[in-house]
Structure formats: structure tokens, C-alpha cells
Design a protein around this nucleic acid. Sequence first.
DNA 1: GCTGGATGTTGACAGTGTCAACCGGGGCCG
DNA 2: CGGCCCCGGTTGACACTGTCAACATCCAGC
Lengths: 217, 217
Amino acid sequence: MAHPAARTRSLREDCLREALAIIDEAGVEGLSLREVARRLGVSHQAPYKHFPSRDHLLAEVVRRAFAAFARHLDDRPRGENPADDLAALGRAYLAYAREHPLPYRLMFGTPLPDPAHHPEMMRSARHAFALLRDCLDRMGADGSKGVPSEATDLDALFVWSAVHGLASILQTGALSTLGLPPAVLASSPSHTLLRIGAALGAEGDPGDGQSGNDQPL
Amino acid sequence: MAHPAARTRSLREDCLREALAIIDEAGVEGLSLREVARRLGVSHQAPYKHFPSRDHLLAEVVRRAFAAFARHLDDRPRGENPADDLAALGRAYLAYAREHPLPYRLMFGTPLPDPAHHPEMMRSARHAFALLRDCLDRMGADGSKGVPSEATDLDALFVWSAVHGLASILQTGALSTLGLPPAVLASSPSHTLLRIGAALGAEGDPGDGQSGNDQPL
DNA sequence: GCTGGATGTTGACAGTGTCAACCGGGGCCG
DNA sequence: CGGCCCCGGTTGACACTGTCAACATCCAGC
């Protein structure tokens, strides 16, 4: 198989791999098509045969990051009841951020190409959010199942805000400039998940009187 | 250049003002010292007499954004009791993000120059965080006042995560790609603050001996 | 065999940050 | 007063970037 196709595809894949390596070493800012080409030993225009522009290359890298992220969330150990499952989702989210800082920062911590121009980029992102919404929907398992209500959307947004906010704060190194002790840093994920659980379990909305459910995360 | 020396002293300020305008129009990526110089009608090297590098100019712009932000939080209407004050702080935070999207995005939504190289940049950021910590410290007004404990740090981090996460999500336009209804968008800030209050109010003291918590992600 | 499209190459152009050299003028000091 | 030097400004260069255009292959399908 002197695969014509295999060869052609290889440069495209090589570009993506090399791009990730460059971003790892030099940050998104350091990514340049010419550097990619140089490292791969091809001419500075070769990558243009596979990506219309630098942003298209970056968008594809990001798209794959989102896809891998969504897959990671999909593959989480499912919790028994909805509350446990939400906790599992939160742990999976933070674990991914911790174990794959590079793709995570790519998704949430760097300036992305305009999503309007790269629609495919956010497909998996939407899927990941849907996971969260479904999980919350099952949690408030009253009549309105199947159709995520506005209340569910709001809670999903809240949970996502808290988890995403923590993950991004932990990553930007903002903490080092804030001078927080390492112990705080270490236990902040579990503490945040605990607080989220409290927020969702404690109160309730006026309608559902089942206040007994305060399973901590 | 026929202009006398009257203006010369203000070139530094002019650069900063013009830089902000450029960032407003073209984003941080569009900021270039040459463009600043061009707009001000000076040579492309003139700004270098006031800023050692492009990043130093950007760092100063960001520093002022943080300073204005901290000032805005300082000037918030103080709440009666600590809980109300926390809510006021949250509202002030989100209001600033909404009313001054440009500086806000500058602080939290764009790649900043390495804080290690620009220490002054984060000074006001630390001050803003201290405000939050103090507020929470007064809230859990048991004996340990004055010395923010680890628990206070953790809660401060949680609150900041949630608020910052929401603000940044609202700004990046990630929501538009998620297809959430506008009504959800509109009420998300107040809902998030509500949930935060619930999380903190639900249980004052979880008897948390969980400082040695090391594997919980 | 010829054609055509995918792939890769070289060459150019405008734009960027930044270093180096030069230069006018005003304050300071001998 | 004369000389000096530094401050703020200038011009000129260099290396780097993305991207357009034209040219060279090679392989598939008619």
C-alpha cells in the first residue's frame, strides 16, 4: 500500500501533532505555520495545502481537544443516583483539567478563533454542556423530565460557572500571584464540589419541598 | 512635528489611551506599537521611549484595568450585614463585567503578559481578592476574625470561581454557541448569586476536617 | 497519451517587534 | 560661558510572521 491517500493525510496529521507540541512549548502565541513547516522539514507553504489559514489549523486542534474532553466526560464512571452522577461529572471535569492542562487551557484559557467562522469547533463543547444539563435534569426528577426546563438551564450554568471558573483560575496561575497557601490549592476542588452540592441540595426552589436531599458531592 | 514640547509629556498617556482604543476595535491581538505610533502621528519607535516593549504597554493597560476594577468594588454600596455585603460584592462584580466588558475581558479573558515579568500588574487584583476574603471572613464571624483562615480562603475561592466563571462565560459568547434562551442569560447572574448564597448559608460549619484531602478530584 | 486536480516548492509583499545609530535641545556642572 | 549628557524623538535595518501568486510534480481517470 503505497497509499497515496495515506501519505497525503500524514502531513495534515503531522501538522496537527506538531502544532500541539509547539503550543505546549511556546503557548498559542508561539504557534506559527512557518514553524510547523520548519519542524516537519517542508516548505513554509506546505501546510496551506491542508489548512486555509493559521486559524483553521488552530480551530482543528481546538476541535479535537473539545472532542477528547467530551469523550472523557462520557466515559466517566456513572454514579448510582443523579446526585452521585453529578458529583462524578464534576470530578471528571476537574480531573481532566488537571491531567490534561494543555488541551484544557486550549479550550478555556486562550483566545480561540471566532466560533462563527469555525462552527465545527464548538460541536463537542455543546455536547459536553448537554451532559451536564441532562444530569441536572435527572436530579430534579420531577415531572418535567426529558425537557430541560429553564431552571435546569440556570443551574447548569451555575454549576458550569463554578467548575469552569475554578479550573481556569487554578490553571492561569492567578493563585500564585494571590499568595494562597498550597493546602488551599490542594483541597479547593473538593471544597468547590461540596459547595456546589450544598447550593443545589440545600434550598430548593419554592415548589419542591424535598429538602431532605443534601447529598454532598 | 511642528508641535512644540507642550504635548511631549503626554505621549505616554496618549499611547495608553490609544492602545485601549485599538484593543476595543481590534482586540488584544490587534494591538501593535506601530499602530499606536501611526495613530498618534509619531515615528514607530517613539512609544519605545516610554515602554520597553509591547508587553510592557499592555501590562500597564491591564494594570489600570485592575485598579479601576478594584476601585469599583471598593465603592460598592456596602451591605448591612456580612451576607448582604457579599451579595453587594457579587452584584458589583457582575455589574462591572457587564458595564465595562472591555476592561473586564482584558483582565480575565485575554492572554496577559507573564505576571512574573510584570509584578505591578496584579497588585490591584490581589486587593480585589482580599476584599472578597474579608467579606467572607466577617460572614463566618466566629472567633477567627482578622486572620482569614483556610476555610475562608476556600470559600473565597469558591465564590470567586462561580462569579468569575459566569462572567467569563457570559462574555466569551460561549453561550451563543450553546443555544441557550435569552431569558436564561438574563437571569443567570442573579440566579448564580442566589445559589452561592445557598451554598454558603446551607451549613455554616461542616466540621470539615478535610484539609488533608489529597486525592479527591 | 493527455488532462486536471491534489500536493509541494519558491518567491514575493506587507505587517510586526525590536535593535542600532543618529540628532536636537534643554538642564546641569565645571 | 562652554561643554556634557541624557531625554525624547527620528530613520534605518533585521528577522520574523501570514498570505498571495506562480511554478513544478505526480498520479488518477478519461
